[in-house]
């Protein structure tokens, strides 16, 4: 690595990490938060066997999990305008990532709900609580504790997958790197650099996940060995 390369790496660093902070992170955080809401509702509908809605929920999960994320991005960004629906790149990416991740989260949360012993719900009934009260106060907290590690993995996977948004002109990190490559003609070093920045971000998320798990362990101590 000579001086020129070092110079290029330092020069390009802010150009790559700033879109990361301005686009990659917000896209991940916003889309994942929405995905959690979608996933929770979808999982609850299936868990509670809600008529009519349950087949719809299954259909949604089936379609989304069975098609590539990139195709979903293209359908929304390049396809929908032909029926008069125009969405800007960033909101389009948020919508697609939220809907996509929502389906995976739904499955994670559903299986976590099913892992809570049926006796917990029955004990809630016998304590005089309604279905919703028992779900909110007893079953969901235990299920979420189980769901946190797999959901954290999903956040990290999603953070990396946001690079796909470059394909629908979202100016995120990969696109910024491609631009830098076209200026400096150093693809190897620049792509390694963006890889390192992704690694930095995912390490940060992993660290946050650990802290969250520790806190949850403290507040719902023993929930896992019920």
């Amino acid at each position: 690595m000579n001086e020129r390369i070092i110079h290029i790496l330092i020069d390009s660093f802010p150009k790559i990490i700033l879109p990361g902070i301005a686009m990659t992170i917000p896209l991940t955080v916003i889309a994942f938060s929405l995905a959690l809401i979608i996933g929770l509702v979808t999982a609850m509908i299936q868990f509670a066997n809600v008529k009519v809605l349950k087949p719809l929920a299954r259909f949604y999960v089936w379609v989304v999990r069975g098609t590539p994320l990139l195709v979903q991005l293209f359908v929304v960004f390049y396809g929908l305008p032909s029926v008069g629906i125009l969405i800007d790149p960033f909101p389009a990416a948020v919508i697609v990532f939220a809907i996509n991740e929502g389906a995976y989260s739904a499955e994670t949360i559903r299986s976590a709900l099913e892992a809570v012993p049926a006796g917990q719900l029955e004990a809630g009934y016998c304590a005089g609580m309604t279905y919703m009260q028992t779900m909110r106060r007893i079953v969901l907290p235990q299920a979420l504790r189980t769901a946190v590690p797999p959901l954290s993995n999903s956040v990290i996977a999603m953070l990396k997958d946001t690079s796909l948004a470059a394909n629908i002109t979202v100016a995120e990190m990969l696109m910024a790197t491609q631009r830098a490559v076209s200026v400096y003609y150093e693809p190897l070093w620049l792509y390694l650099e963006v890889g390192l920045i992704y690694l930095l971000f995912t390490t940060l998320f992993t660290w946050l996940q650990r802290r969250l798990e520790k806190r949850l362990n403290r507040s719902v101590k023993g929930a896992q060995n019920a």
């Binding site: 004990a123 809630g124 304590a127 005089g128 009260q133 907290p141 019920a226």
Partner: peptide, 28 residues
Amino acid sequence: TGFVFQNYNLFANKTALKNITEGLTTAR
């Protein structure tokens, strides 16, 4: 009515006290 199960079915995410008060505060 009250119900006591063979395998206790205490709320795993609640302390002993909260197991008792839950039905009082939330339900009643």
